[in-house]
Design a protein around this nucleic acid. Structure first.
Lengths: 233, 233
DNA sequence: CAGTGGTCTAGACCACCGC
DNA sequence: CGGTGGTCTAGACCACTGC
């Protein structure tokens, strides 16, 4: 009974998921050791490990050496978001992408920004603001600051021909990033640009990327009203 | 040269990441086969596979049998969000969590909802609305519909003693879910509940969970203004 | 100390698919 | 056909940690 269809790691994982979902293994309870499960399923321990490691990564199992493996008490759902290049995001929605540069100029960055990035105060950064359109309707406003120390040659890039979003992804690798999602009311300027009423609720993504502790770019994406970011668990 | 610090899979992965980040391997280019890399690093092929599989999962590499492994052309950044129980989310912020039930009653669900869930029209569902507080200030409004066909005994649960959020996580397993994030202006009712001005921009999470194609629950979480959801890449 | 998970190995077979 | 990644095995050593 409860024989996995196959003794592949996927089959074993499915069986383990079933036991958790059907409350055969209760939250918080200790589950058999890898070695025991390997015997039960008639496979190598590495195969059981492969199945269980993913479940532990996903937060479904808590594993500790010597203490063994337990079914997680508070299974936090883990959501994976893919954040593509904006052009591709628009095109994947079946819309025509268009892009328009508003402003690109080197300016001293605000104290709030430089301190957040760990740069000297009054550092000069390249400030690029642009609008992305989907089928000729404003889709999002991209407000970006680029670290000129790290990318000096960015001064000569023509951001009316390629979006900063796309240029950076192709030319400025990063090793880490902070992202936050929030909602914000549109101020007068944004409302005008996005063709929305002032105060309209906008979905906002703030992102800072780093290349080994050196900041690359800080960007705020403000989506036109009605935008939804969808995914599955 | 370019010797990995160790021949552990993490060391190898770090070295591969370095080669990609430093443009030693260009986007779109073919990288050596697992077997060749195993020889180069002096380790087993499985160890190289372990390192590369994660990078492929993360979208950094494109792998195909026979065709080999290439550096991804459009590295879409993949973001992982952990969505915990609301009580824990509040407590992790160092605030005191409090909860208050607004309403819990069985009602026929709207046509929009039943069709979305694939239930017969006018199906009766349990409608639970409640407020979560952080340090006595409104934190979020939870507006939930629960499938009474799937969970008939939920009628007798006292949702003034335990939040629907927490009860469901502990008692109603699911196998899949759809999530969407958006921004919404507060209507009069929400504004009043969340102690916010009418029209204030709210961060909203809509989630539907399924247990093998049967809907479990649909919920909308409307966060009080100022909420940010943070994560790292 | 001893049991558990974390990792690595050397080898093997297979599925896929470009050639 | 043959090269590549996907997976599985049997075994091994080790790190961690509860007892």
């Amino acid at each position: 009974m409860t024989i996995a269809d196959t003794n592949s790691w996927r089959g074993i994982q499915a069986e383990l998921l079933r036991r958790i979902n059907e409350r055969e293994w209760l939250p918080g309870s200790l589950v058999p050791s890898e070695a025991d499960l390997a015997i039960e399923f008639g496979c190598a321990r590495a195969t059981v490990n492969r199945a269980m490691r993913e479940m532990a990564d996903a937060g479904l199992l808590d594993r500790k050496r010597k203490a063994g493996t337990r079914v997680a008490l508070h299974p936090t759902s883990r959501v994976v978001l893919d954040i593509p290049i904006i052009r591709l995001e628009v095109e994947q929605r079946g819309a025509e992408w268009r892009y328009s540069l508003i402003e690109s100029s080197a300016e001293p960055a605000s104290l709030a920004l430089t301190s957040r990035l760990g740069l000297p105060r009054d550092s000069e950064m390249l400030h690029v603001r642009s609008l992305h359109y989907a089928d000729n309707r404003p889709f999002l406003h991209e407000d970006r600051w680029i670290n000129l120390d790290l990318l000096p040659h960015v001064r000569s890039v023509d951001f009316s021909a390629i979006s900063a979003n796309e240029w950076l992804i192709q030319n400025a690798p990063y090793t880490a990033g902070d992202i936050s999602f929030s909602a914000m009311g549109a101020d007068a300027g944004l409302a005008d640009l996005l063709d929305a009423p002032e105060g309209a609720a906008l979905f906002v993504i703030d992102r800072i990327t780093w290349d080994k502790d050196r900041p690359v770019t800080a960007v705020r994406l403000s989506y036109a009203p009605g935008y939804r970011m969808n995914t599955k668990i």
